[in-house]
């Protein structure tokens, strides 16, 4: 077993710490040390986005991120979006529009769309399609994912359901 490093960071609003192998990915540590299984290992090389998390406000492929680099950072995962006020608007829109089929890409898609809308809640269809160019879905053909993203953006801007 390779060298372990002690790290502390903020995970979904809570201060946490862990000893992590120096060569482990953030994804592995989140899944196995923190039991957050929403983000998935699908391709392991940044081609699919199923492992997307938000680190210090930026979406990242957690499979390509050294776990040791989580130290001191603020991390959000799909589990952290469902809060006391209910589902995140992106999650709610995914549910309502039928953007979930097998759901294996969903956690990554939700986080990536959340990231895109955080940067521009008024993002239009073309911008949102580019925003998820690194997220592969094999079930939906992306149409309902984009529909959900547009609906979530509208809700985040304070509008009602489109």
């Amino acid at each position: 077993m390779s060298l372990e490093v002690e790290i502390a960071f903020t995970l979904n609003g809570r201060a946490v710490s862990a000893a992590v192998p120096a060569t482990a990915s953030a994804l592995t540590v989140l899944r196995e040390r923190f039991d957050l299984a929403g983000a998935k290992l699908v391709c392991g090389e940044g081609e699919c986005g199923a492992c997307t998390i938000i680190v210090d406000g930026l979406s990242r492929n957690s499979c390509l991120m050294p776990a040791v680099d989580l130290a001191g950072r603020t991390v959000r995962t799909v589990e952290g979006l469902w809060g006391e006020r209910g589902l995140d608007p992106v999650q709610q829109a995914f549910v309502d529009t039928g953007a979930v089929q097998c759901g294996y890409c969903t956690a990554g898609m939700v986080m990536q769309i959340r990231h895109a809308l955080d940067r521009n809640p008024a993002a239009g269809e073309a911008e949102l399609r580019r925003a998820i160019e690194g997220n592969v879905c094999r079930c939906t053909g992306y149409a309902k994912v984009i529909e959900a993203a547009l609906a979530a953006g509208q809700r985040m801007r304070g509008g009602g359901a489109p």
Binding site: V78, L87, V95
Partner: peptide, 15 residues
């Protein structure tokens, strides 16, 4: 609404 969509959208589903 697909019955399992809320669990899948929140990362609750265990595959």
């Amino acid at each position: 609404v697909k019955l399992d969509a809320p669990d899948k959208a929140t990362g609750r589903t265990r595959y």
